[in-house]
Design a protein around this nucleic acid. Structure first.
Lengths: 206, 206
DNA sequence: TCATTATATGAATTGATATTCACAAGATGA
DNA sequence: TCATCTTGTGAATATCAATTCATATAATGA
């Protein structure tokens, strides 16, 4: 894409992204309201006024950031899972991809979590228009895979697939948050097999 | 306790609680920053100045609310589980208590969730001093029960108890959030058995 | 080089809302 | 009934941070 842009455009896009990066760090650290436009400007090494040449308001900046990153994350996740066949392999891939993305963008995952939990119940436009639709794509992918899993006898047929997806998503999130708490992604990485067993076999002694 | 108070004290405590109730509704609806002190005052049917006779700042009001309610919820949960024996019975009790509390205080659970996710990573004083210590009491109760469960052979011994607690807490939260999303607590209540099976047996066909 | 255009700056403005405080109203008990 | 003490009021003030804009600086290309 950047090949088709002139230097002007390319530099503009570069600055735009620098601002998003700065915003990501600030918002992840101190939340939307705890972050001032000046904070972001300082971190990006621009004057306040300059930010307003790129984004019409603090709100727009925040929305642009969430949109950009959520779309990137979900896209990356779906691509990683694209060619995987077999229920167990898919779940493993889902979990491992979560590790990779968490390693690549820990700040954003903190931010995303806040967005997911904080604005979820408030049903903000951002949640409805950007976060949820993207998230739904992932849920759909998992749902279809689990339906296939039931059909071929790998998964039990007395639990709704949506409930299985909720369980998988939340078990993995639980370990992820615990790791983000301690700023220790390796901790999450070592739990891949634990999550697999918890999800597929549960905790009961067999 | 209220028996030992004079009318003065009792009335003061009553007003104090009325303000907390009003604050709970406002904060749950519009978040901390979206709520003005005037909103709370109006809802409580007091003048702004009066609120400041009870709480020295908006921040103090918020902290008092979270502290009060978190302590109440955890206490109620622990008491409900106090005499339960047997791993399966305890887990069922945990899940069912969550339904009851969610029914009793849905607004606060929305607020609590926000607090848990939003301030968790920011490691606010409120999180460190109030929310987490209470939460930990619950984790301890479950941890001990699961250790007993392993000892008596009801639970597998190749997964750390802390991980089991994380899984249980997050599976149940997943269904809880889904229900709170739709403002439909009954939806959560119908999932008790599903959560039990997911937690104990997992999704694999046996 | 110089005129023109694009980009960057940050002090000044604006708007919102948390907090204060001088005063009012109500309760209490002599 | 009156003096005193307690509680309630909300307009006025203080604070903080988003946004604007007149001006400065840098890039372009004739």
């Amino acid at each position: 894409m950047s090949g088709s842009m002139g230097r002007r455009e390319r530099e503009h896009a570069q600055r735009y992204n620098d601002i998003l990066d700065a915003a990501e760090e600030c918002f992840a650290e101190k939340g939307f309201h705890g972050t001032t436009v000046e904070d972001v400007a300082n971190r990006a090494e621009f004057a306040v006024g300059t930010l307003y040449k790129f984004f019409s308001s603090k709100d727009e900046l925040y929305k642009a950031l969430i949109k950009e990153r959520v779309e990137y994350l979900i896209q990356a996740g779906l691509e990683a899972m694209a060619d995987v066949v077999g229920t167990e392999e898919l779940v493993r891939c889902y979990i491992e991809t979560k590790v990779r993305l968490c390693r690549a963008k820990p700040n954003f995952l903190r931010l995303y979590t806040r967005e997911r939990m904080g604005d979820r119940f408030a049903k903000t436009e951002l949640w409805r228009e950007v976060v949820w639709p993207n998230f739904e794509r992932l849920y759909t992918r998992l749902t279809e895979a689990f339906e296939a899993g039931i059909a071929e006898g790998a998964l039990r047929d007395d639990i709704e697939v949506f409930d299985m997806v909720v369980a998988l998503d939340n078990i993995t999130d639980g370990f992820l948050f615990d790791a983000l708490d301690d700023d220790d992604i390796d901790k999450y990485a070592t739990k891949v097999e634990v999550m697999m067993r918890l999800f597929f076999d549960g905790v009961a002694r067999k």
